[in-house]
Design a protein around this nucleic acid. Sequence first.
DNA 1: CAGCATCCGCTTTGATACTG
DNA 2: CAGTATCAAAGCGGATGCTG
Lengths: 208, 208
Amino acid sequence: MRTYDQYCAAARALDVVGDRWTLLIVRELLVQQPCRYTDLRYGLPGVATNLLADRLRELEENGVISREEAPPPIATTLFRLTPRGEELKSVLEALGRWGRPLLEETPGDADFRSHWLALPLELQLKDHAPDRPPVTIEVHTGDRPIVIEAGDGSVRVRPGTVSGPDAKLTGTPPLVLGVLTGELGLARARADGLEFEGDPKALRRVRP
Amino acid sequence: MRTYDQYCAAARALDVVGDRWTLLIVRELLVQQPCRYTDLRYGLPGVATNLLADRLRELEENGVISREEAPPPIATTLFRLTPRGEELKSVLEALGRWGRPLLEETPGDADFRSHWLALPLELQLKDHAPDRPPVTIEVHTGDRPIVIEAGDGSVRVRPGTVSGPDAKLTGTPPLVLGVLTGELGLARARADGLEFEGDPKALRRVRP
DNA sequence: CAGCATCCGCTTTGATACTG
DNA sequence: CAGTATCAAAGCGGATGCTG
């Protein structure tokens, strides 16, 4: 672990999580809480396997993650964040907010995993009608479908599908993200290729 | 600029500010708003001069900083953050909060610059008596003295001294920081080598 | 002196292949 | 599945030199 050797809290934090890939590993674990080595590799396209192994060891040494040998029938190593590691969520939120405008200029062929939407969506979306029955929105973009569940005043995002969703969105990540965050009107997005089925009210319920 | 090539806001942010030294350069500019190349080098002990030049060029290309040729009598290049660059303050705050516990285990011979205290102190300290006349606390630790000014409900930290401060602290950075944030009692800190002159009430006025 | 650019040895990274 | 081994390429840190 290379260190800046400075008596400064930010510099000390960067000593631990400032190396390449490190914060993205934390991002993966924040979204997919306990996950396998293979899952991490899948969520971090481009990472070298030796580098991933190195980072995981360093993160464990620094108390950010823990590893656990799951007994059969799982019979594999599971990685998860420690409570200390979970506190890095605020760092990733700040980074994500700052980086949001940069998505506009991201090339269309950039890698994408649909679960990367979970954190920003849970952060930005609100349930504006806590007293009404819950609604679900299915989102089809990227590699696998995800579901947005709004109810009781909170919004959750998880991988998977649901039977009879209130709405269903299909399209490229920029279109889907734009529509969900309200930066892009539904009509405009449909003109640009977004497919929308179901009740637009479900959308309005969660938009910021 | 090496990129992760991911359609993810956090990853895009790290593309821009994730390289070694980059966020520490931003830290320097957040504290010492317009500053010279030489000032940056002083605030970033250990940075290679070519690397600093590279980073400054990249940050300028990415709209984070701007450079300005100051006319005589200054006659030098001044670097400052753009509004977009200033928004990185939230990232450094999150990192600093997370890294705070790591200061305890930082070796005593780590580099230190007293202006590194400005950001965390302005963030943590409060003026608990907004209606009373302002107070000033002079802090002598590290390379140069700094002054904490509390009044009208806000707390400011700047380099320099003041005539007739309400209190004066002298000691190592951990002692000074501990006493100011209230994690360390004044009596205990004095026993450990801290020198304190003046009115303890000034301290209580700003402690979190 | 301020603001770099160049050179050099070392470390880190990335890509691939291989193993229990 | 969860890594380790190997190696080329890129990045980094330190020293030094150059230019206004």
